[in-house]
Design a protein around this nucleic acid. Sequence first.
DNA 1: TGGAAATAGTTGTACAATGCAACTATTCAC
DNA 2: GTGAATAGTTGCATTGTACAACTATTTCCA
Lengths: 148, 148
Amino acid sequence: MTKQEQIEQAVEKFWETIPPAWHATRAVVRGAAAEKFHLTEEQFQVLRRIRRGSASVSALAEASQTSRSAVSKAVEALVRRGLVSRSQNPDDRRNLPLALTDEGQRVMAGVYDETEQWLSARFTRLTAEETESLLLGMESLRKAFTTP
Amino acid sequence: MTKQEQIEQAVEKFWETIPPAWHATRAVVRGAAAEKFHLTEEQFQVLRRIRRGSASVSALAEASQTSRSAVSKAVEALVRRGLVSRSQNPDDRRNLPLALTDEGQRVMAGVYDETEQWLSARFTRLTAEETESLLLGMESLRKAFTTP
DNA sequence: TGGAAATAGTTGTACAATGCAACTATTCAC
DNA sequence: GTGAATAGTTGCATTGTACAACTATTTCCA
């Protein structure tokens, strides 16, 4: 198999794999987050990333590959609901660091557990070797999409 | 690394990899498809899958993990624009087989080339080994999400 | 130092994406 | 032949999203 054929295969498999997997996952997040906590999927992603350390609108937009304005609106809704706090960075007053409030932490733990369990259930279907190849493959995918 | 740890890593990597990759790709499709051909991203996916052989609203919904109603609306728009034809299946009159019209084929070729090129460019950044692991990993991902 | 360019973030607007529930038409199961 | 299942559509409500225009602040550099 030439490099070129390999790439064509990857493109084809990408289409067949990534969008459906993401749609299915998003549907689960939407169900769990909306029903129990009145969070939208976008808001869930924002909470998740803030918990992981992304602490500004720009960082969130960069990490999730969406626009600053979309993130800004999600954050605004979360701040209004008291799940996220916005503070001021004295070193750069354009920058508004974000953090989870206690309530945000609590909500996040609940939603995350549920969706993580669902995802874990998918991955439990795989053998150890398949899971290993999944990890390697996702690392390659990440590299393909982030290398400048 | 225990199986459980492996799965937790996979969940984490999934969140960090799949949504951003998909968002970025969708943005490109949206740009190319919208600007040159006035297609929405959803319509692009439908055209793509019809070309690949998915020939009914239900099959499309199943393949893309979305609802029949969402697909139905996209198909309706494409039929109205003359890119897709709906026929009747004499063996089951509930079933309305779909096919690309000549114009649909032409448009699809144009859009697909462009987005495929963009995706190919991402994957060209990878070594042969990385591309190989990407292929294996996506196969695992597909399995994780389709096994009943 | 003064101003141009860059960056962080917000908001208005418009449209795309989507699910759900209710509906029709048809087929299947027994 | 009737009730359950399936294919598909439509109305409605809501989310997701980008783009462009805007403010506020910082950085760059001549």
